[in-house]
Design a protein around this nucleic acid. Structure first.
Length: 284
DNA sequence: CGGCAAACCTGCGAGC
DNA sequence: TGCTCGCAGGTTTGCC
């Protein structure tokens, strides 16, 4: 699913379609996602103005006219389809939550694996458990090498796993952690608490760089993610390590290593149940 | 408290 | 063609 760049791509589409408009009705087709929708979800949204659509970590939040906020998490397989009323042919398989705007626009949350979430929170949303211990936004100027080092603390766990922890930094998932570590030339196995100031500097730059480029590309399309307009993102074509097991590391080759050097092949290992892709030569 | 495996659920591609 | 198996972008829970 969707990591920060994919969520941001969806947020932009929702913002364009709904911001400033009024919700005419909300259709709930099945309620048993990862957490059940709140009982009053449809009633709470009906006839409300959508003041803004923003993002925190991998959550999309819609601020409603009365101060309530609708939080949306796409889980692993969540997608949002947005269309004009004239193109709406009724719900598709796995459409669980559908917003009908007063101007006819329709936004449908489709989630085959049902790991996604929709819930309501107040204008004090930052105090909600989903966000009260969430780490900094990686694209904010406040996200710096020293901030990251403080967040990593003295933890002994592998750096890869620490970066997946949303309390360390918000929005990273398996793909972009692998990519950022490779770009920074850091080992996914080194203890998180041992990252030096210089390494943290490289890592922060890499994280910002890979996320910005992925957003510009409309995210990555793997298996079941696509943009709200049905088009696919194309950042997957720019992957350096993710899903490139046994292929040669481009960085090593462009640094003059012969393409026959077997230590330049991308390896895949499993850390805490998740695939890690890395170059054993330039990430040691 | 920190670290990690398992569970949540469906779909898809690979291999037989 | 059709089956089974393994694997998938996330988060939470519960165990050690």
């Amino acid at each position: 699913m969707p990591e920060l760049p994919e969520v941001e791509t969806v947020r932009r589409a929702l913002s364009l379609a709904l911001e400033g408009g009024v919700i005419r009705s909300v259709e709930i087709r099945r309620n048993d996602l990862r957490i059940p929708f709140p009982e009053n979800l449809a009633a709470a949204m009906r006839e409300q103005k959508v003041k803004s659509v923003f993002r925190r970590g991998k959550y999309i939040l819609m601020a409603l006219g009365d101060g309530q906020h609708v939080a949306l998490h796409l889980g692993m397989s969540g997608r949002v389809r947005i269309m004009d009323g004239k193109d709406w042919a009724g719900p598709a398989k796995h459409d669980h939550f559908i917003i009908h705007a007063a101007d006819g626009k329709v936004a449908a949350l489709n989630d085959s694996r049902r790991f996604g979430m929709v819930f309501l929170t107040s204008d004090e949303w930052e105090a909600h458990p989903a966000w009260n211990s969430m780490g900094p936004e990686p694209l904010d100027t406040g996200f710096s090498a020293s901030v990251l080092r403080k967040r990593l603390g003295k933890s002994s766990r592998p750096l890869k796993l620490a970066l997946l922890d949303q309390r360390v930094v918000a929005g990273l998932g398996n793909i972009y952690v692998c990519e950022a570590l490779h770009m920074a030339g850091l080992s996914p196995f080194s203890p998180a608490g041992g990252v030096s100031a210089v390494e943290s500097e490289r890592l922060v730059s890499a994280i910002k760089d890979v996320l910005s480029r992925a957003i510009d590309a409309g995210g990555s399309t793997l298996r079941d993610y696509s943009q709200a307009n049905g088009e696919t993102g194309y950042f997957q074509f720019a992957f350096s390590v993710y899903d490139r097991e046994a292929e040669f590391c481009r960085k090593c080759v462009s640094n003059g290593d012969s393409a026959e050097n077997e230590s330049c092949r991308i390896e895949r290992v499993v850390q805490s149940g998740r695939s890690t892709f890395y170059c054993p030569r330039c990430q040691s």
